[in-house]
Design a protein around this nucleic acid. Structure first.
Lengths: 126, 126
DNA sequence: TTTATTAATGCAACAAAGTTGCAAATCATA
DNA sequence: TATGATTTGCAACTTTGTTGCATTAATAAA
């Protein structure tokens, strides 16, 4: 792992933003600060950062893929505004693990991970 | 709405299969029964059937999009096998609506719909 | 400081999953 | 069966990534 300008800028961008960003968002932000990186480079850096465990890839069921800094409260879910596309974190582990055990038994399905998203309108868009 | 060969075959395929099928799956099944429909046609029929409320589009967070017949127990979630890609339905509304109300209040976010998937290993793949 | 090594980058081409415009074929109903 | 609106197929295009390959740049060693 080398510390290159793109890598540094990318981590800085992700650490400033609380909402997970798409590759396109990130590319735009890089260009906005006059760092004209190629999209291939951005994708490769995101891959590499993910493998290092520094970021997490968030795949939403609206088919958007976003990236967020790893670290804090690592497992959480998302509130996605269908109007402005803003994404916020939300904690929701409460009953899930217990219910997952029920599912595993009744469906004979070994759960490795889950994904849960709430789509709706954020405060500003209501 | 006209009753064309593609439309009829498509509905028949979806009614036979309990797991939601991808557009590619459907196209393959059509070709298997010597109905050489174009992918554009399949996508347009799926669109039209969705608008008529006859089928539902299932967008999973692994970025796959699948289609299933509408009707029965319309709101449910999915168990997705990460090995064989089989998808099964699972009911899980229990605590969700109550918790959604909490989220709406505390996050000032109006929830319109949610999506939940469990990824893991089905019985055959364990 | 210079050099060597290896990773990072840019470019162009490719890929998967759809979407769109348009002309041709087909369904249905009068 | 003639008419007119729907469907269909084809080709081209779009989006979001991915890959190969030659070039450039970061870092560690000399």
């Amino acid at each position: 792992m080398r510390s290159t300008p793109v890598r540094k800028a990318l981590l800085k961008i992700l650490s400033k933003d609380q909402a997970p960003l798409s590759a396109f968002d990130i590319l735009a932000k890089l260009h906005a600060q006059k760092l004209l990186a190629n999209k291939t480079t951005v994708y490769r850096q995101l891959d590499s950062l993910e493998k290092q465990g520094l970021i997490h890839t968030v795949r939403l069921s609206d088919r958007s893929v976003r990236y967020e800094l790893a670290g804090k409260d690592d497992h959480h879910h998302h509130l996605v505004c269908v109007k402005c596309n803003d994404v916020k974190d939300v904690d929701f582990e409460n009953h899930l693990s217990r219910q997952e055990k029920n599912i595993e038994k009744s469906k004979k399905f070994k759960i490795l991970r889950h994904s849960m998203e709430f789509f709706g309108l954020c405060f500003n868009c209501q």
